[in-house]
């Protein structure tokens, strides 16, 4: 009972997938021309100005191919990886978030216009094509933007860590004696990073005594003090004695009142006396003392 099939007035229900397949074929066919147009629009919109035209073209090619692949497979994983790599390369060159979002939106626009041209004869079909295209395109734009922002945040975090590392030097002033001058706010993250650094320093320098100078810490509240107690205790576990200098008696009193256990901290007025105390612990004898004896 087969007769010549009549053209179907309505598409079959699995149309979205079928439409996307058709769309992918169209984008593959017109790859060269659409990519050219996209790059032209990027340049016109003065996006990615930190990059050369060749670089833009090379990245645009990869993004385009990844884009089509997402439409085809529905999986954003490869695009995500690519977007991270891309971000890693372009962030140091000063490319901004709005530029990355901008170029992806441009591509979405370039492709949508091309679809419009292709299907403008059949308005209903065009509508269905765009209905299938839009959610996928939005998902792609979202993926790229999120990857970029995440990568940017990661870069900033790494830079912050590097700066912190520089701002808390563990100094060896004498054999087996370390000085750790803390300057700035002692929050949880910093205290942690500083403690790790000190403990490694104790091991590397075989330190027996550590002088932690907190003169440069603007406010020593209970959180900062508790961190300090932990640092002192961890150092002791490794076999090093800690002397804390620069803790004013007013602050010490306040801390005791709010219940911070300062008993475990060997506190000495200023850095100079702290170092003398450290030398005494190490068994050095000050010459003056000896001649007086």
């Amino acid at each position: 009972m087969s007769s010549k099939p009549k053209p179907l007035p309505q598409p079959p229900p699995e149309s979205t997938a079928a439409l996307l397949r058709e769309l992918v074929a169209h984008l593959r066919e017109n790859r060269i021309q659409l990519r050219e147009e996209w790059v032209r629009r990027i340049t016109e919109s003065k996006l990615l100005t930190a990059m050369t035209r060749e670089e833009i073209f090379a990245e645009a090619t990869s993004v385009y191919d990844n884009y089509v692949e997402v439409l085809e497979t529905g999986s954003v994983e490869a695009l995500q990886t690519y977007a991270r790599n891309l971000s890693e390369r372009i962030i140091p060159r000063g490319v901004e978030t709005h530029e990355v979002v901008g170029i992806v939106l441009l591509l979405r626009d370039v492709l949508a216009r091309s679809l419009f041209r292709k299907y403008q004869g059949d308005f209903e079909l065009l509508n269905r094509v765009l209905d299938a295209y839009e959610p996928a395109a939005n998902r792609i734009a979202n993926t790229v933007a999120v990857s970029f922002v995440e990568e940017r945040e990661r870069t900033i975090r790494l830079q912050q860590e590097a700066i912190r590392e520089l701002s808390t030097p563990v100094l060896q002033v004498r054999e087996r004696m370390l000085i750790l001058p803390i300057i700035g706010v002692l929050d949880s993250q910093r205290a942690r990073q500083l403690t790790e650094q000190l403990l490694r320093g104790i091991r590397a320098n075989r330190a027996k005594v550590v002088v932690i100078d907190i003169t440069g810490v603007p406010s020593v509240d209970s959180t900062a003090a508790n961190h300090l107690v932990q640092t002192v205790e961890a150092s002791r576990l490794m076999g090093a004695r800690v002397i804390v200098t620069g803790l004013s008696s007013e602050v010490a009193q306040t801390l005791v009142t709010i219940g911070v256990e300062l008993g475990k901290i060997n506190a000495v007025g200023d850095l100079q006396s702290g170092m003398e105390e450290a030398e005494r612990l190490l068994g050095y004898r000050v010459i003056l003392e000896e001649s007086a004896a």
Partner: peptide
Amino acid sequence: VVGIQPEVAFAMVQLGLTL
């Protein structure tokens, strides 16, 4: 007790173990 490693000392203090 000798030889407690830096990472171990750190974790112990976080856990509240001070020997």
